[in-house]
């Protein structure tokens, strides 16, 4: 059998193995490939930096589930570290049922690094509310309409941090971390209606879809996939805010190598496809 034909018939398990190795090996032998910082990621970082410390809060919406956590968790960690180190206040909420669990897990992971950070003073975790559009709109009127209490059942009126926070006017920036089309809802109801500033952290699957909104300025910035998360980690590290283990940055080596392997496979696959096709043609014409 012709070599290219063999390639075409290659058992897909070998490809799985190849990809697994391409991801696995850089973990053991880190290459520290350089990463460039893109403008959308820098814009999110700058927007957070521009919030006055101990001033109006940053609202992080964790609208994702465990299935997209590897991309979005590092963004949540980096944002929380950024805010907690620089004494910026944070509100967390979820419009997606599992999102509440993700936010809680993120807090549980980050809070031990910041023993001084207290619920109700430095951050407020509002929990989950069903009814995506209705919640986003009600935040424009009063946070208390959708979230009379925080996730732990404490009335918002009794939380010092929420004293001056009523609606979008009092929220410096919203960052939506989402694995779905929820950012569009934020654009339609929070940005278009209330003029809220919105940054997003999205999975790479949906990043391409969101460029028009970035381009039009409806998103002030965007973190796209693991790369976006790694960029944010680098940005906060460059400022000397944290020395914690940077999950996304570590993963990017594997990402780059896996991409190279996939590129090679695409090229080989295409050559094999056309070569075996021309081979077939020759076969029929010689008949």
């Amino acid at each position: 059998m012709n070599f290219w034909k063999k390639v075409m018939k290659l058992n897909r398990r070998w490809i799985f193995l190849l990809i697994a190795l391409a991801v696995f090996i850089p973990f053991l032998k880190p290459l520290r490939l350089p990463l460039s910082i893109t403008k959308p990621a820098k814009d999110v970082f700058d927007a957070v930096e521009s919030i006055p410390p101990e001033g109006p809060p940053l609202l992080i919406a964790t609208d994702y589930a465990p299935s997209t956590a590897p991309e979005l968790d590092p963004m949540l960690y980096a944002l929380l570290r950024h805010c907690f180190v620089t004494k910026r206040r944070v509100m967390l909420l979820a419009l997606y049922p599992q999102g509440a669990g993700m936010a809680q897990a993120g807090l549980d992971f980050i809070l031990p690094e910041f023993p001084d950070v207290k619920s109700g003073e430095d951050y407020v975790f509002l929990g989950y509310q069903p009814g995506v559009q209705a919640v986003v709109m009600s935040l424009g009127e009063d946070v208390r309409l959708a979230f009379p209490t925080d996730a732990y059942g404490v009335s918002l009126d009794s939380l010092p941090m929420m004293e001056h926070v009523r609606n979008y006017d009092d929220i410096a920036l919203v960052v939506d971390l989402a694995g779905s089309s929820i950012p569009i809802t934020w654009v339609i109801y929070a940005v278009a209606r209330y003029g809220q500033r919105l940054g997003v952290g999205v999975t790479a699957v949906s990043a391409a879809q969101y460029y028009p909104y970035l381009n039009s300025g409806q998103f002030i910035g965007m973190l796209g996939g693991l790369k976006g998360a790694a960029e944010y980690e680098i940005l906060i590290q460059q400022k000397g805010y944290t020395e914690a283990r940077q999950i996304a940055t570590i993963g990017m080596d594997s990402q780059s190598i896996a991409h190279l392997v996939i590129l090679a496979l695409i090229i080989i696959g295409n050559i094999a496809f056309f070569a075996s096709k021309s081979h077939k043609k020759k076969g029929t014409s010689s008949k």
Binding site: P70, E71, T203, G225, L226, I250, I262
Partner: peptide, 22 residues
């Protein structure tokens, strides 16, 4: 472009699990 991004996302998921395992 969207497909390329998707490949990145899927690899990221694998990386996330690999990080967890290792």
């Amino acid at each position: 472009a969207s497909f390329g991004y998707t490949v990145m996302a899927r690899i990221s998921l694998l990386i996330g699990r690999m990080n967890f395992l290792l």
